[in-house]
Design a binder for these strands. Sequence first.
DNA 1: GAGTGGTCTAGACCACGAA
DNA 2: TCGTGGTCTAGACCACTCG
Lengths: 248, 248
Amino acid sequence: MSRRARNGRPRYLEIARILERDIVRGKYPVGGLLPTENELCKTFGVSRYTVREALRRLRDLDLVTRRQGSGTQVITRLPRSTYTQSFVSLADLLQYAKDTYLRLGPREKVTARGALARLLGASPGQQWLKYAGVRYSREPAVPICTTDVYIRPAFVGIEQRFGKQPGAIYVLIEEMYGEKIAEVVQHISAVSMPVAAARVLGVEPGSPALGIVRRYLSGSGQTIEASVSLHRADRFTYSMRIRRDGTH
Amino acid sequence: MSRRARNGRPRYLEIARILERDIVRGKYPVGGLLPTENELCKTFGVSRYTVREALRRLRDLDLVTRRQGSGTQVITRLPRSTYTQSFVSLADLLQYAKDTYLRLGPREKVTARGALARLLGASPGQQWLKYAGVRYSREPAVPICTTDVYIRPAFVGIEQRFGKQPGAIYVLIEEMYGEKIAEVVQHISAVSMPVAAARVLGVEPGSPALGIVRRYLSGSGQTIEASVSLHRADRFTYSMRIRRDGTH
DNA sequence: GAGTGGTCTAGACCACGAA
DNA sequence: TCGTGGTCTAGACCACTCG
């Protein structure tokens, strides 16, 4: 066999998805063990490297834990783990944006005042552009959250590239305008799902929602972009690892 | 050559640390490229796999970005994350623990099984100690969240110091037993406030709550301590900063 | 002692980016 | 076109866990 004619997707991602699906469907119960690496090699007809890359992904998604000597244990079955977001760095934010899809509505002009001005870190009266959107997971393509994106009018040009390439909005601004993001500040809270967002996401109004507000700041502390997201509580968990240092 | 007599540390971690140090020292300036994988293989006398594992680590630390065709670019000179971010974040955790007050209830013995075993990353049947508590802000002294703390029976001695000094539980374990926390994994989600917690916190059952589950891990990946907290949504927001150092 | 995942080698072809 | 990183194979030894 050997040389695989790849259909565009890396084999290890395919395998990761199959295993992910099987976990969600209950083929591998929570608390139980996945087949060993060796068995998976035979099952999928691939080398150990490929299997290990797939398992690495499952571990990064927090679906399994792995320990030498004892095996690969399933720790979560809930499909929301699929959308669990694990951030230690901006690179993770970017990866998350690539694994999902953000569909944005038409441009609106808004004036920063009151709570919005505070959110944007802008002077009251300043003009901003707003795009109401919904973020979907790629497969299955289900809505995860509503997202309102705010950018300064100067960056209106990135509109042309909305949806044309996956990735985070801030990358578009960096690429088109050379305005570098130095810092992201985010606030996470629990809120009651408002009626409008509930309808879009297909949940009951008033059900619990995870709200995330992000500000993307330039080196001088100016807000370049901001976003307000409301996540279905049952499909989203924010996970993070805090490492003390790099020595182990 | 071949078989390396390893001094205990994986070779790829050694290489990662050497490259990290060189970046910090300015040998590879921000914006510049690291040597190619091939060159690094020759330099260190290792296979490409080992070099790639080392580079993967640098990427996870946000020190470099990698793109096929163009190379490995240095994006940060400061080892942010290893020290800056995680240190800052752990410090934040500690600061939070100092600004508030955790009142713990009596010791209970619990057996890890099912969901609890998964939470603790423990084998089913293992014995743990549980303390149900409530965290208050110092002034005004109002309840912020309920917190269940889980520790291994070996660390029962820290009970004596509950409430005698402010700070996080994990610090007590580190000080009394010398068991160092290497990593904290946390999951943040929105949930409906359960009846019992609602009574303690003085809110309506079913109102939105921010749930935070934390596992404190030793260097070998063992869970030292775990906690489950439910926060009043109106009194708690989780805020964080993701910095990208060295952007020029 | 048997079997697990962790590390490592020495090859190979492929997709992409820049000259 | 050429060199980069991305994917992949088929081996190997090692450290750890558990019966």
